[in-house]
Simulated assay, not measured.
Amino acid sequence: MSSTPATPGLPISAQTIPLFPLGSTLFPDGRLPLQVFEVRYLDMIGRCIAQGSHFGVVALTEGAEVRRPGQSERFVGVGTVARIKQWSKPAAGLMRIDCSGVERFRILKAEQHKHGLWTAEVELIEADRVIPIPDELANTATALEHLLQSVMRQGLPESEVPIAAPFRLDDCGWVANRWAEMIPVPVAQKQSLLALDNPLLRLELVQDALDQLGWLK
């Protein structure tokens, strides 16, 4: 089956959502391609597509992305709602989906069901305020712009570009989130960035990490 647009997302009003624990952190406006083959997630994604609903992505602190008998799963308390943008079924028992991050949420109560699927009662976290990038942090935006230009020169299909448009290179939160997705730091450090309510502080911490990595000139 060729790639088909998912049903347009509905407003997130319900406070209970299914969860997809992963070994990585999804940030708002981030791009998340997934290959889905576990029955618990095939069923969940099928329902999300049919209903135009969303699911939550949370980072694992214990366990693996693929469930094994007797394996326990633990995950962080703050995650990001994922909206399905495109999906396809290249083979029986396999789905490919392209998702984008929407709102952040905080888990109030989580429950694992008989077939392994987690659901959680959540409260949504207010979206970042739009804060212009101050001069002392401008090098983070400039470096990201150069990286984007380099990627675009490769002529990759839009679906393979790791950062989705529109590019908001003058917004502290957006720039911080894009770098936070890419920098090679532990998941716990990424989670602390995700949970911050101050996008300016998040970008300051990202700048420190980029300096340590030698990614800024």
Score class of each variant (00 low, 15 high):
T4Q: 13
T4V: 14
A6H: 00
I12M: 11
I12T: 10
S13I: 13
A14R: 14
Q15T: 15
L22H: 07
F27W: 03
P28F: 05
D29P: 00
Q35T: 11
Q35C: 07
F37G: 09
D43N: 08
I49T: 00
Q51E: 15
V57S: 03
E62W: 01
E65T: 04
Q71N: 01
G79C: 08
V81N: 01
R83H: 14
R83F: 05
S100F: 01
E103Q: 15
A110E: 05
V122Q: 01
E126F: 06
E136V: 07
A138S: 13
N139R: 09
N139I: 12
T140P: 07
T140F: 07
L144A: 05
L147Q: 13
P157S: 04
S159F: 02
V161A: 10
V161Q: 14
I163M: 12
P166V: 10
F167V: 02
F167H: 14
R168T: 02
L169R: 13
G173V: 05
V175R: 10
W179C: 07
M182D: 03
I183D: 00
Q191F: 00
S192D: 11
S192Q: 15
D197W: 02
D197L: 13
P199N: 05
R202L: 11
L205F: 10
V206L: 02
D208R: 15
D208V: 13
D208L: 12
A209D: 11
Q212H: 12
L213S: 06
